[in-house]
Design a protein around this nucleic acid. Sequence first.
DNA 1: ACTATATAGTGTGTCTATGACACAAAAGCA
DNA 2: TGCTTTTGTGTCATAGACACACTATATAGT
Lengths: 223, 223
Amino acid sequence: MPPLPVTVDSVILTVLEGTLQVLLVRRMDSPFVGLWALPGGFVRPEEPLENAAIRELRESTGVDEVYLEQLYTFGQPQRDTRGRVVSVAYVALLAADRCPIKPQRLEAEVRWWPVYELPELAFDHGAMVEMSLQRVRTKLEYTTIGFQLMPEAFTMAQLQSVYEVILDRSLDKRNFQRKLSLLGLVEPTGDVRKEGRGRPAQVFRFRDVDFVHLRERGIHVPF
Amino acid sequence: MPPLPVTVDSVILTVLEGTLQVLLVRRMDSPFVGLWALPGGFVRPEEPLENAAIRELRESTGVDEVYLEQLYTFGQPQRDTRGRVVSVAYVALLAADRCPIKPQRLEAEVRWWPVYELPELAFDHGAMVEMSLQRVRTKLEYTTIGFQLMPEAFTMAQLQSVYEVILDRSLDKRNFQRKLSLLGLVEPTGDVRKEGRGRPAQVFRFRDVDFVHLRERGIHVPF
DNA sequence: ACTATATAGTGTGTCTATGACACAAAAGCA
DNA sequence: TGCTTTTGTGTCATAGACACACTATATAGT
Protein backbone atom coordinates (compact mmCIF):
# COMPACT_ATOMS: atom_id res chain seq x y z
CA MET A 1 0.00 0.00 0.00
CA PRO A 2 1.49 3.36 -0.97
CA PRO A 3 2.54 5.50 1.97
CA LEU A 4 1.02 8.92 2.62
CA PRO A 5 2.55 12.25 3.54
CA VAL A 6 1.91 12.97 7.22
CA THR A 7 1.95 16.40 8.80
CA VAL A 8 1.28 17.84 12.21
CA ASP A 9 -0.63 21.06 12.72
CA SER A 10 -0.88 22.84 16.04
CA VAL A 11 -3.64 24.95 17.43
CA ILE A 12 -1.63 27.12 19.79
CA LEU A 13 -3.85 29.01 22.18
CA THR A 14 -3.18 31.74 24.66
CA VAL A 15 -5.16 34.35 26.52
CA LEU A 16 -3.97 37.79 25.59
CA GLU A 17 -5.58 41.19 25.94
CA GLY A 18 -8.66 39.66 27.43
CA THR A 19 -9.44 37.23 24.64
CA LEU A 20 -8.57 33.74 23.62
CA GLN A 21 -6.14 33.91 20.74
CA VAL A 22 -4.69 31.43 18.31
CA LEU A 23 -1.36 31.64 16.53
CA LEU A 24 -1.57 31.73 12.75
CA VAL A 25 1.04 32.04 10.04
CA ARG A 26 0.49 33.50 6.62
CA ARG A 27 1.07 31.03 3.83
CA MET A 28 3.84 31.93 1.42
CA ASP A 29 3.34 28.94 -0.91
CA SER A 30 0.65 27.41 -2.99
CA PRO A 31 -2.02 26.35 -2.28
CA PHE A 32 -3.88 29.07 -0.38
CA VAL A 33 -1.07 31.59 -0.83
CA GLY A 34 -1.67 34.60 1.37
CA LEU A 35 -4.27 32.89 3.55
CA TRP A 36 -3.68 32.27 7.21
CA ALA A 37 -2.99 28.77 8.49
CA LEU A 38 -2.01 26.88 11.60
CA PRO A 39 1.71 26.35 12.11
CA GLY A 40 2.65 22.87 11.04
CA GLY A 41 4.81 20.76 8.82
CA PHE A 42 5.81 17.32 7.74
CA VAL A 43 6.73 14.63 10.19
CA ARG A 44 10.32 13.45 9.78
CA PRO A 45 11.03 9.81 9.13
CA GLU A 46 12.27 8.90 12.60
CA GLU A 47 10.44 11.55 14.56
CA PRO A 48 7.61 10.75 16.99
CA LEU A 49 4.45 12.68 16.18
CA GLU A 50 4.53 14.62 19.39
CA ASN A 51 8.13 15.62 18.81
CA ALA A 52 7.17 16.96 15.42
CA ALA A 53 4.50 19.07 17.09
CA ILE A 54 7.00 20.30 19.66
CA ARG A 55 9.50 21.14 16.95
CA GLU A 56 6.95 23.16 14.98
CA LEU A 57 5.90 24.87 18.16
CA ARG A 58 9.44 25.88 18.95
CA GLU A 59 10.02 27.09 15.42
CA SER A 60 6.93 29.26 15.40
CA THR A 61 7.00 30.56 18.97
CA GLY A 62 10.49 29.97 20.31
CA VAL A 63 8.98 28.14 23.27
CA ASP A 64 8.91 24.53 24.26
CA GLU A 65 7.75 22.87 27.45
CA VAL A 66 4.14 23.77 26.98
CA TYR A 67 1.01 21.78 27.51
CA LEU A 68 0.48 19.73 24.38
CA GLU A 69 -2.27 17.29 23.60
CA GLN A 70 -3.19 15.38 20.51
CA LEU A 71 -6.50 16.60 19.15
CA TYR A 72 -7.60 14.58 16.14
CA THR A 73 -6.31 13.23 12.89
CA PHE A 74 -7.69 14.72 9.71
CA GLY A 75 -7.42 12.52 6.68
CA GLN A 76 -9.97 13.45 4.07
CA PRO A 77 -8.37 12.82 0.67
CA GLN A 78 -9.35 16.27 -0.62
CA ARG A 79 -8.21 18.32 2.35
CA ASP A 80 -5.03 19.39 0.56
CA THR A 81 -5.53 20.39 -3.03
CA ARG A 82 -2.03 19.24 -4.02
CA GLY A 83 -2.72 15.64 -3.13
CA ARG A 84 -3.52 13.57 -0.14
CA VAL A 85 -1.95 14.56 3.15
CA VAL A 86 -2.88 13.17 6.53
CA SER A 87 -2.60 15.68 9.34
CA VAL A 88 -2.38 14.97 13.04
CA ALA A 89 -3.62 18.03 14.87
CA TYR A 90 -2.40 19.03 18.32
CA VAL A 91 -3.56 21.64 20.81
CA ALA A 92 -1.04 23.63 22.78
CA LEU A 93 -1.76 25.98 25.64
CA LEU A 94 0.70 28.71 26.28
CA ALA A 95 0.80 31.18 29.14
CA ALA A 96 0.90 34.65 27.66
CA ASP A 97 3.82 35.73 29.83
CA ARG A 98 5.98 32.91 28.52
CA CYS A 99 5.37 33.82 24.96
CA PRO A 100 7.85 35.93 23.06
CA ILE A 101 5.44 36.75 20.27
CA LYS A 102 3.73 39.98 21.10
CA PRO A 103 0.33 41.01 19.89
CA GLN A 104 1.37 42.20 16.49
CA ARG A 105 0.52 44.46 13.65
CA LEU A 106 -1.83 43.25 11.00
CA GLU A 107 0.89 43.02 8.35
CA ALA A 108 2.99 40.51 10.25
CA GLU A 109 3.52 37.00 8.91
CA VAL A 110 3.03 35.32 12.26
CA ARG A 111 0.53 36.67 14.72
CA TRP A 112 -2.10 35.97 17.32
CA TRP A 113 -5.71 36.12 16.19
CA PRO A 114 -8.67 36.37 18.54
CA VAL A 115 -10.55 33.10 18.04
CA TYR A 116 -13.85 34.91 17.69
CA GLU A 117 -12.60 37.06 14.81
CA LEU A 118 -10.67 34.68 12.62
CA PRO A 119 -9.88 35.34 8.98
CA GLU A 120 -10.52 32.68 6.38
CA LEU A 121 -8.18 29.78 7.05
CA ALA A 122 -6.36 27.49 4.65
CA PHE A 123 -7.18 23.78 4.31
CA ASP A 124 -9.50 22.47 7.03
CA HIS A 125 -7.75 24.51 9.67
CA GLY A 126 -10.97 26.25 10.59
CA ALA A 127 -12.41 22.91 11.65
CA MET A 128 -9.29 22.19 13.65
CA VAL A 129 -9.63 25.43 15.57
CA GLU A 130 -13.32 24.73 16.21
CA MET A 131 -12.57 21.29 17.53
CA SER A 132 -9.78 22.57 19.73
CA LEU A 133 -12.11 25.10 21.33
CA GLN A 134 -14.62 22.43 22.16
CA ARG A 135 -11.90 20.25 23.60
CA VAL A 136 -10.43 22.99 25.74
CA ARG A 137 -13.81 24.13 27.02
CA THR A 138 -14.77 20.63 27.95
CA LYS A 139 -11.50 19.87 29.67
CA LEU A 140 -11.63 23.13 31.53
CA GLU A 141 -14.53 21.62 33.42
CA TYR A 142 -12.91 18.52 34.80
CA THR A 143 -9.18 19.10 34.64
CA THR A 144 -6.69 21.76 35.50
CA ILE A 145 -5.64 22.65 31.96
CA GLY A 146 -6.75 26.20 32.61
CA PHE A 147 -3.70 26.57 34.81
CA GLN A 148 -1.48 26.15 31.77
CA LEU A 149 -2.56 29.56 30.63
CA MET A 150 -1.60 31.35 33.83
CA PRO A 151 1.68 32.84 34.97
CA GLU A 152 3.21 31.45 38.14
CA ALA A 153 1.65 34.09 40.32
CA PHE A 154 -1.75 35.56 39.66
CA THR A 155 -4.77 37.09 41.27
CA MET A 156 -8.18 35.51 41.52
CA ALA A 157 -9.60 38.08 39.14
CA GLN A 158 -7.04 37.11 36.51
CA LEU A 159 -7.74 33.43 36.91
CA GLN A 160 -11.47 33.92 36.70
CA SER A 161 -11.05 36.09 33.66
CA VAL A 162 -9.18 33.32 31.85
CA TYR A 163 -12.01 30.93 32.57
CA GLU A 164 -14.55 33.43 31.38
CA VAL A 165 -12.70 34.14 28.19
CA ILE A 166 -12.45 30.48 27.29
CA LEU A 167 -15.97 29.56 28.25
CA ASP A 168 -17.25 32.76 26.69
CA ARG A 169 -19.58 33.58 29.56
CA SER A 170 -19.32 35.32 32.87
CA LEU A 171 -19.00 33.51 36.16
CA ASP A 172 -19.98 34.42 39.67
CA LYS A 173 -17.00 35.66 41.63
CA ARG A 174 -18.02 34.17 44.95
CA ASN A 175 -18.92 30.77 43.60
CA PHE A 176 -15.70 30.69 41.62
CA GLN A 177 -13.53 31.40 44.62
CA ARG A 178 -15.43 29.11 46.91
CA LYS A 179 -15.07 26.21 44.53
CA LEU A 180 -11.43 26.87 43.95
CA SER A 181 -10.52 27.00 47.61
CA LEU A 182 -12.69 23.96 48.22
CA LEU A 183 -10.62 22.08 45.68
CA GLY A 184 -7.44 23.21 47.35
CA LEU A 185 -5.80 23.91 44.03
CA VAL A 186 -4.32 27.28 44.86
CA GLU A 187 -2.58 28.88 47.81
CA PRO A 188 -1.79 32.51 48.59
CA THR A 189 1.83 33.53 48.17
CA GLY A 190 1.37 36.15 50.87
CA ASP A 191 1.98 39.02 48.49
CA VAL A 192 -0.56 41.47 47.28
CA ARG A 193 -0.62 43.21 43.97
CA LYS A 194 -1.54 46.81 43.41
CA GLU A 195 -2.66 47.44 39.86
CA GLY A 196 -3.57 51.07 39.49
CA ARG A 197 -6.70 51.91 41.37
CA GLY A 198 -8.80 49.68 43.55
CA ARG A 199 -8.12 47.52 46.55
CA PRO A 200 -4.95 45.39 46.13
CA ALA A 201 -5.50 41.73 45.34
CA GLN A 202 -3.97 38.75 47.02
CA VAL A 203 -1.52 36.84 44.87
CA PHE A 204 -1.89 33.09 44.48
CA ARG A 205 0.11 30.25 43.05
CA PHE A 206 -0.94 26.73 42.10
CA ARG A 207 -0.29 23.91 44.46
CA ASP A 208 1.01 20.75 42.94
CA VAL A 209 -2.15 18.82 42.51
CA ASP A 210 -2.43 15.64 40.55
CA PHE A 211 -4.09 16.39 37.26
CA VAL A 212 -6.29 13.31 37.34
CA HIS A 213 -7.72 13.75 40.79
CA LEU A 214 -10.35 16.14 39.60
CA ARG A 215 -12.27 13.64 37.59
CA GLU A 216 -11.83 10.91 40.17
CA ARG A 217 -13.35 13.19 42.74
CA GLY A 218 -16.24 13.73 40.39
CA ILE A 219 -15.62 17.40 40.39
CA HIS A 220 -17.10 19.73 37.87
CA VAL A 221 -15.43 23.07 37.46
CA PRO A 222 -17.92 25.29 35.61
CA PHE A 223 -18.99 27.45 38.47
CA MET B 1 9.65 14.74 3.19
CA PRO B 2 9.23 10.98 2.70
CA PRO B 3 5.68 9.74 3.17
CA LEU B 4 4.78 7.17 5.82
CA PRO B 5 2.63 4.06 5.73
CA VAL B 6 -0.67 4.75 7.48
CA THR B 7 -2.93 2.11 8.94
CA VAL B 8 -6.17 2.07 10.86
CA ASP B 9 -6.75 -0.29 13.78
CA SER B 10 -10.13 -0.77 15.40
CA VAL B 11 -10.98 -1.61 18.96
CA ILE B 12 -14.33 -3.29 18.41
CA LEU B 13 -16.22 -3.74 21.66
CA THR B 14 -19.36 -5.60 22.54
CA VAL B 15 -21.02 -6.94 25.63
CA LEU B 16 -21.39 -10.68 25.41
CA GLU B 17 -21.99 -13.30 28.04
CA GLY B 18 -21.96 -10.70 30.76
CA THR B 19 -18.57 -9.21 30.00
CA LEU B 20 -17.10 -6.52 27.84
CA GLN B 21 -15.31 -8.17 24.94
CA VAL B 22 -12.98 -7.02 22.21
CA LEU B 23 -12.52 -8.56 18.78
CA LEU B 24 -9.01 -9.83 18.06
CA VAL B 25 -7.49 -11.60 15.10
CA ARG B 26 -4.54 -13.92 15.20
CA ARG B 27 -1.59 -12.70 13.19
CA MET B 28 -0.53 -14.93 10.32
CA ASP B 29 2.46 -12.86 9.24
CA SER B 30 5.64 -11.51 10.70
CA PRO B 31 6.12 -9.67 12.99
CA PHE B 32 4.36 -11.12 16.02
CA VAL B 33 3.24 -14.24 14.16
CA GLY B 34 0.72 -16.14 16.22
CA LEU B 35 0.01 -13.27 18.58
CA TRP B 36 -3.39 -11.63 18.77
CA ALA B 37 -3.94 -8.18 17.34
CA LEU B 38 -6.67 -5.67 16.62
CA PRO B 39 -8.26 -5.87 13.18
CA GLY B 40 -6.76 -3.24 10.94
CA GLY B 41 -4.95 -2.55 7.75
CA PHE B 42 -3.48 0.02 5.47
CA VAL B 43 -5.38 3.06 4.34
CA ARG B 44 -5.92 3.13 0.61
CA PRO B 45 -4.71 6.11 -1.40
CA GLU B 46 -8.08 7.78 -1.94
CA GLU B 47 -9.89 6.42 1.08
CA PRO B 48 -10.96 8.62 4.01
CA LEU B 49 -9.61 7.32 7.30
CA GLU B 50 -13.03 6.58 8.67
CA ASN B 51 -13.94 4.63 5.56
CA ALA B 52 -10.85 2.52 6.02
CA ALA B 53 -11.99 1.75 9.54
CA ILE B 54 -15.45 0.87 8.31
CA ARG B 55 -14.02 -1.36 5.62
CA GLU B 56 -11.86 -3.27 8.09
CA LEU B 57 -14.80 -3.53 10.41
CA ARG B 58 -16.95 -5.04 7.70
CA GLU B 59 -14.21 -7.43 6.67
CA SER B 60 -13.69 -8.72 10.19
CA THR B 61 -17.27 -8.75 11.45
CA GLY B 62 -19.54 -8.59 8.40
CA VAL B 63 -21.28 -5.60 9.93
CA ASP B 64 -21.30 -1.96 9.08
CA GLU B 65 -23.41 0.90 10.40
CA VAL B 66 -21.99 0.78 13.87
CA TYR B 67 -20.96 3.48 16.23
CA LEU B 68 -17.44 4.47 15.27
CA GLU B 69 -15.23 7.09 16.82
CA GLN B 70 -11.64 8.06 16.26
CA LEU B 71 -9.59 7.26 19.34
CA TYR B 72 -6.01 8.39 18.93
CA THR B 73 -3.15 8.28 16.49
CA PHE B 74 -0.16 6.21 17.43
CA GLY B 75 3.03 7.18 15.70
CA GLN B 76 6.06 6.08 17.70
CA PRO B 77 8.78 5.19 15.17
CA GLN B 78 9.47 1.83 16.83
CA ARG B 79 5.89 0.65 17.22
CA ASP B 80 6.20 -1.66 14.21
CA THR B 81 9.42 -3.63 14.07
CA ARG B 82 9.41 -3.70 10.27
CA GLY B 83 9.69 0.06 9.96
CA ARG B 84 7.72 3.10 10.78
CA VAL B 85 3.96 2.89 10.50
CA VAL B 86 1.51 5.49 11.75
CA SER B 87 -1.74 4.02 13.00
CA VAL B 88 -5.01 5.83 13.49
CA ALA B 89 -7.01 3.89 16.09
CA TYR B 90 -10.80 3.81 16.16
CA VAL B 91 -13.30 2.51 18.68
CA ALA B 92 -16.41 0.74 17.50
CA LEU B 93 -19.35 -0.32 19.65
CA LEU B 94 -21.41 -3.19 18.42
CA ALA B 95 -24.65 -4.53 19.83
CA ALA B 96 -24.15 -8.22 20.47
CA ASP B 97 -27.36 -9.17 18.69
CA ARG B 98 -26.22 -7.52 15.48
CA CYS B 99 -22.98 -9.39 15.40
CA PRO B 100 -22.60 -12.55 13.35
CA ILE B 101 -19.44 -13.62 15.15
CA LYS B 102 -20.40 -15.91 17.95
CA PRO B 103 -18.38 -16.47 21.07
CA GLN B 104 -15.89 -18.90 19.64
CA ARG B 105 -13.57 -21.70 20.40
CA LEU B 106 -10.05 -20.90 21.51
CA GLU B 107 -8.48 -22.14 18.31
CA ALA B 108 -10.35 -19.72 16.06
CA GLU B 109 -8.48 -17.08 14.11
CA VAL B 110 -10.98 -14.34 14.88
CA ARG B 111 -12.71 -14.22 18.22
CA TRP B 112 -14.04 -12.12 21.06
CA TRP B 113 -11.83 -11.79 24.11
CA PRO B 114 -13.04 -10.56 27.49
CA VAL B 115 -11.20 -7.30 28.04
CA TYR B 116 -10.19 -8.31 31.54
CA GLU B 117 -8.50 -11.50 30.36
CA LEU B 118 -6.57 -10.48 27.30
CA PRO B 119 -3.66 -12.44 25.87
CA GLU B 120 -0.44 -10.69 24.96
CA LEU B 121 -1.14 -8.36 22.05
CA ALA B 122 0.98 -7.47 19.05
CA PHE B 123 2.44 -3.99 18.52
CA ASP B 124 1.07 -1.37 20.90
CA HIS B 125 -2.43 -2.77 20.62
CA GLY B 126 -2.59 -3.32 24.36
CA ALA B 127 -2.28 0.41 24.86
CA MET B 128 -4.99 0.99 22.29
CA VAL B 129 -7.39 -1.27 24.13
CA GLU B 130 -6.57 0.42 27.43
CA MET B 131 -7.22 3.84 25.98
CA SER B 132 -10.46 2.74 24.40
CA LEU B 133 -11.75 1.46 27.73
CA GLN B 134 -11.02 4.76 29.39
CA ARG B 135 -12.72 6.60 26.56
CA VAL B 136 -15.82 4.45 26.65
CA ARG B 137 -16.13 4.60 30.43
CA THR B 138 -15.82 8.33 30.43
CA LYS B 139 -18.29 8.84 27.63
CA LEU B 140 -20.74 6.50 29.25
CA GLU B 141 -21.12 9.16 31.89
CA TYR B 142 -22.15 12.08 29.76
CA THR B 143 -23.37 10.64 26.49
CA THR B 144 -25.65 7.92 25.28
CA ILE B 145 -23.01 5.70 23.72
CA GLY B 146 -24.08 2.90 26.02
CA PHE B 147 -27.20 2.59 23.91
CA GLN B 148 -25.07 1.48 20.98
CA LEU B 149 -24.49 -1.79 22.76
CA MET B 150 -28.17 -2.57 23.24
CA PRO B 151 -30.64 -4.33 21.01
CA GLU B 152 -33.70 -2.35 19.93
CA ALA B 153 -35.83 -3.69 22.74
CA PHE B 154 -34.46 -4.48 26.15
CA THR B 155 -35.29 -4.67 29.79
CA MET B 156 -34.00 -2.37 32.48
CA ALA B 157 -32.00 -5.20 33.99
CA GLN B 158 -30.21 -5.74 30.70
CA LEU B 159 -29.43 -2.09 30.29
CA GLN B 160 -28.13 -1.78 33.79
CA SER B 161 -26.01 -4.84 33.34
CA VAL B 162 -24.31 -3.31 30.31
CA TYR B 163 -23.45 -0.24 32.32
CA GLU B 164 -22.14 -2.37 35.15
CA VAL B 165 -20.01 -4.47 32.87
CA ILE B 166 -18.38 -1.45 31.26
CA LEU B 167 -17.88 0.52 34.44
CA ASP B 168 -16.80 -2.63 36.24
CA ARG B 169 -18.84 -1.93 39.33
CA SER B 170 -22.36 -2.55 40.48
CA LEU B 171 -25.06 0.10 40.43
CA ASP B 172 -28.16 0.61 42.49
CA LYS B 173 -31.23 -0.55 40.63
CA ARG B 174 -33.55 2.14 41.93
CA ASN B 175 -31.15 5.01 41.38
CA PHE B 176 -30.41 3.73 37.91
CA GLN B 177 -34.03 3.65 36.89
CA ARG B 178 -34.82 6.95 38.52
CA LYS B 179 -32.04 8.68 36.63
CA LEU B 180 -32.97 7.08 33.37
CA SER B 181 -36.61 8.02 33.52
CA LEU B 182 -35.65 11.50 34.70
CA LEU B 183 -33.59 11.87 31.54
CA GLY B 184 -36.48 10.68 29.44
CA LEU B 185 -34.23 8.55 27.30
CA VAL B 186 -36.29 5.40 27.20
CA GLU B 187 -39.95 4.53 26.85
CA PRO B 188 -41.82 1.28 27.44
CA THR B 189 -42.90 -0.59 24.34
CA GLY B 190 -45.83 -1.99 26.27
CA ASP B 191 -44.59 -5.54 26.01
CA VAL B 192 -43.25 -7.64 28.80
CA ARG B 193 -40.64 -10.31 28.58
CA LYS B 194 -40.72 -13.59 30.41
CA GLU B 195 -37.29 -15.07 30.76
CA GLY B 196 -37.57 -18.35 32.61
CA ARG B 197 -38.46 -17.82 36.23
CA GLY B 198 -39.18 -14.58 37.99
CA ARG B 199 -41.57 -11.75 37.44
CA PRO B 200 -41.73 -10.64 33.77
CA ALA B 201 -39.90 -7.45 32.93
CA GLN B 202 -41.20 -4.47 31.03
CA VAL B 203 -39.58 -3.99 27.64
CA PHE B 204 -38.18 -0.59 26.69
CA ARG B 205 -36.85 1.11 23.61
CA PHE B 206 -34.77 4.24 23.26
CA ARG B 207 -36.43 7.46 22.36
CA ASP B 208 -34.72 9.57 19.79
CA VAL B 209 -32.80 11.93 21.94
CA ASP B 210 -30.17 14.26 20.66
CA PHE B 211 -26.82 12.88 21.61
CA VAL B 212 -25.40 16.24 22.63
CA HIS B 213 -28.18 17.29 24.96
CA LEU B 214 -26.80 15.30 27.83
CA ARG B 215 -23.71 17.37 28.24
CA GLU B 216 -25.55 20.60 27.64
CA ARG B 217 -27.92 19.73 30.41
CA GLY B 218 -24.94 19.11 32.63
CA ILE B 219 -26.03 15.59 33.22
CA HIS B 220 -23.84 12.99 34.74
CA VAL B 221 -24.82 9.41 34.26
CA PRO B 222 -22.78 7.49 36.83
CA PHE B 223 -25.63 6.44 39.02
C1' DA C 1 -8.54 66.14 53.02
C1' DC C 2 -12.41 64.88 51.06
C1' DT C 3 -15.09 62.61 47.59
C1' DA C 4 -15.76 59.67 43.80
C1' DT C 5 -14.50 55.61 41.71
C1' DA C 6 -12.60 51.19 41.13
C1' DT C 7 -11.56 46.67 42.55
C1' DA C 8 -11.19 42.89 46.21
C1' DG C 9 -13.26 40.09 49.47
C1' DT C 10 -16.80 37.63 51.85
C1' DG C 11 -21.79 34.30 53.59
C1' DT C 12 -26.42 32.62 53.26
C1' DG C 13 -30.38 30.43 51.71
C1' DT C 14 -32.78 27.64 48.31
C1' DC C 15 -33.03 24.08 45.30
C1' DT C 16 -31.76 19.97 43.03
C1' DA C 17 -29.01 15.77 42.51
C1' DT C 18 -27.01 11.97 44.74
C1' DG C 19 -26.67 7.85 47.19
C1' DA C 20 -28.05 4.58 50.68
C1' DC C 21 -31.50 1.61 51.80
C1' DA C 22 -35.97 -2.74 52.04
C1' DC C 23 -39.95 -4.84 50.87
C1' DA C 24 -44.00 -6.19 48.03
C1' DA C 25 -45.59 -8.15 43.41
C1' DA C 26 -45.53 -11.53 39.80
C1' DA C 27 -44.03 -15.35 37.75
C1' DG C 28 -41.97 -20.51 37.57
C1' DC C 29 -41.07 -24.83 39.77
C1' DA C 30 -41.39 -28.68 42.94
C1' DT D 1 -49.43 -24.31 47.97
C1' DG D 2 -45.28 -22.64 49.23
C1' DC D 3 -40.44 -21.84 47.81
C1' DT D 4 -37.46 -19.41 44.69
C1' DT D 5 -36.33 -15.98 41.40
C1' DT D 6 -36.65 -11.61 39.34
C1' DT D 7 -39.08 -7.10 38.80
C1' DG D 8 -40.70 -2.84 40.54
C1' DT D 9 -41.08 0.94 43.61
C1' DG D 10 -40.28 5.58 47.63
C1' DT D 11 -37.96 8.07 51.31
C1' DC D 12 -34.64 10.43 53.71
C1' DA D 13 -30.23 12.52 54.61
C1' DT D 14 -26.43 14.82 52.51
C1' DA D 15 -23.75 17.48 49.25
C1' DG D 16 -23.32 20.41 45.48
C1' DA D 17 -25.13 24.16 42.50
C1' DC D 18 -26.62 28.58 41.92
C1' DA D 19 -28.41 33.14 42.89
C1' DC D 20 -27.54 37.13 45.28
C1' DA D 21 -25.37 42.37 47.90
C1' DC D 22 -22.65 44.64 50.80
C1' DT D 23 -18.20 46.07 53.05
C1' DA D 24 -13.10 46.95 52.71
C1' DT D 25 -9.19 49.16 50.68
C1' DA D 26 -6.89 51.34 47.46
C1' DT D 27 -6.21 55.38 43.71
C1' DA D 28 -7.57 59.76 41.18
C1' DG D 29 -9.35 64.12 41.02
C1' DT D 30 -10.83 68.25 43.15
